[in-house]
Each structure stands twice: as structure tokens, then as C-alpha cells.
């Protein structure tokens, strides 16, 4: 259908396998080695589609990060009830007594 709008011209940004692997680590995801080339190619196509934005001159255009025009939303410094510890830890996959438990943190 509207595919004609997004011609597959050559990749400006080369989405390479090492780049994808680096991003995957940053995102705390795994990419099975057998899948890495396919994932890189797919992301490459999406990034190419996204790069049609470069056809527009946006010099001096103020970025719009959020359409809300609101300002100054506050709450007052009044305590509200916390959850009980049982409720707070009810959905946790691994807990021990009062704590959540995770693999040893090195830092």
C-alpha cells in the first residue's frame, strides 16, 4: 500500500551485528548468535524507513517531547499508607524473609 513512500535507498546508518549486540547488552536482551544477522537486517530496514525524516529540514524547530501543555503538577508532602511487606513482595519471583533476592551484585 503506502510502501512507495519509503523507498529502500541504501542504508545511511549501517546496522551492523556488533552494533546490535552492543545495543542488546544495553537493553539487557539476548540475541542468539544464529539470529543476530537476521535481527540486524530487520532493524536496518526499520532504521532506513525512519531515516526518511532526514528529508525534512528541521533546523530551529523546537522538539515536542510531550503534547501536554500542563505545568506545575504537585502533590503535598503528606504521607500515604505504604503496602504491607507481604503485599509489596507478593509478586516477587525470589525473596527471602524481609528482602528481595538477586544474584550477587559485584560493585
Amino acid at each position: 500500500m503506502t510502501r512507495h513512500l519509503y523507498p529502500l535507498f541504501s542504508l545511511r546508518m549501517d546496522i551492523t551485528r556488533p552494533l546490535v549486540e552492543k545495543v542488546a547488552l544495553l537493553a539487557r536482551l539476548e540475541i542468539p548468535p544464529a539470529d543476530a544477522d537476521r535481527v540486524a537486517a530487520q532493524l536496518g530496514r526499520i532504521v532506513t524507513m525512519v531515516e526518511t525524516l532526514n528529508k525534512l529540514d528541521t533546523k530551529g524547530v523546537e522538539p515536542l517531547s510531550n503534547p501536554t501543555g500542563l505545568v506545575d503538577a504537585f502533590r503535598s508532602d503528606e504521607p500515604r499508607p505504604s503496602l504491607s511487606r507481604d503485599e509489596a513482595l507478593a509478586n516477587a519471583p525470589d525473596k527471602v524473609e524481609m528482602f528481595l533476592r538477586v544474584p550477587r551484585v559485584v560493585e
Binding site: L26, L43, V47, V50, T58, V61, P63
Partner: peptide
Amino acid sequence: RRRILLGTFALSSGYYEAYYKKALQVRRL
């Protein structure tokens, strides 16, 4: 997973301006 990778890439150091900020400017347009 695909969208998380895409978003992580577009916000990461060196690509933020070219992708995320550019997209926000087009959003304004």
C-alpha cells in the same frame, strides 16, 4: 524485543540527535 532494541539504539550516545531529537522536531511539525 525489536522495539526495545530500536528505542535503545535511538536514545544511545551518538544517535540521540539524529533519531530521537529529529523525530521530536518532526512531531512538532
